[in-house]
Design a binder for these strands. Structure first.
Length: 286
DNA sequence: AAGCACACCTGCTAGC
DNA sequence: TGCTAGCAGGTGTGCT
């Protein structure tokens, strides 16, 4: 479910709830949620007693920075972090300690103020794992990700990601090693706003088109964050307080096959592309 | 070696 | 009403 805007809305909620708090216990449920960690059994000992210094984001992945305290962390020290990937169906939810936990709660951070943070993930494509990060840098576990679509992408970086690639431009946008943060919803939306067909070979996109796309990406992502993200029909995405997003009302093409294009009124088409569904306007997008 | 299919899961919906 | 097939926001692996 969550793409960059949803991850960012969740990040802000986790930051509000957990930054500065000390973790008094880490409870692990289903093993699969920690399958990417080198030694899941030792995670509670690693995390318990640590203070949440910051909650960051790279692409769709959240980074919870933990410091053993008690004082401020000195500069220049390698950081222990937990990376949290929400996968298709993952949620992070805050609640009072003692409240009933929903089904599919796989990881619980018990905090020192009587609240807890829960990782809930029915489809179990998400995960929680430890990593380490250099001062001010990215965790080692996220080294493979390309530039963050909101914070690190510029026209030159996007052009470099496309150069010489014969793969469809939408598939390239979904490749997290090329650009980190776009998923199926926002890839459809940014291509529409840039007037580019999702089926075009990435390497065939001209400079002027790359520039339009590089401008559309932060515009769409910023607007989506401001609207609290996108919650599609199944209601799967909610923020830490259980609130749904509102950006789905602004979608121009995603999941609107058969409806009229908002710009030209031609019917929006859906095609199968790399095992996913792409929605686009064949008249506006060339 | 880029690009592709597939596996990994659960839940919901559309259709019979 | 009840069953089943198909589909869903993602990504790591292994094949060609």
């Amino acid at each position: 479910m969550p793409e960059l805007p949803e991850a960012e809305v969740v990040r802000r909620g986790v930051d509000r709830a957990a930054r500065g708090r000390t973790v008094t216990a880490l409870l692990l449920g289903r093993d699969r949620a920690t399958r990417r960690d080198p030694d899941p059994a030792s995670l509670p000992a690693l995390v318990t007693g640590r203070r949440v210094e910051s909650v960051d984001r790279v692409g769709k992945v959240l980074v919870v920075d933990l410091w053993a305290g008690p004082g401020a962390r000195p500069d220049g020290v390698e950081r222990d972090v937990l990376v949290v990937h929400l996968g298709m169906s993952g949620q992070l939810r805050t609640a009072r300690t003692g409240d009933d936990r929903p089904a599919h709660t796989h990881v619980v951070w018990v905090l020192d103020d009587g609240t807890e943070l829960r990782f809930v993930d029915p489809r179990t494509f998400g995960h929680v794992a430890r990593s380490t990060a250099p001062p001010g840098g990215r965790p080692a576990a996220l080294a493979h990700l390309g530039p963050d679509a909101l914070d690190e992408l510029d026209p030159a970086a996007l052009a470099a990601a496309f150069a010489g690639r014969r793969v469809a431009v939408k598939a390239r946008l979904l490749d997290q090693t090329a650009v980190a943060g776009l998923g199926n919803i926002y890839a459809d939306e940014v291509l529409f706003r840039a007037g580019i067909s999702p089926l075009r070979a990435a390497g065939s996109v001209r400079t002027v088109e790359v520039d339009r796309l590089a401008a559309a990406i932060p515009e769409v992502l910023t607007a989506a964050i401001a609207a609290g993200g996108s919650t599609l029909g199944d209601g799967g995405y909610v923020d830490v307080d259980g609130r749904t997003g509102r950006y789905q009302a602004e979608h121009r093409v995603h999941a609107r096959a058969g409806q009229a294009c908002p710009d030209c009124a031609a019917p929006i088409t859906r095609v199968r592309l790399g095992g996913r569904t792409a929605s686009w306007c064949p008249r506006c997008q060339r």
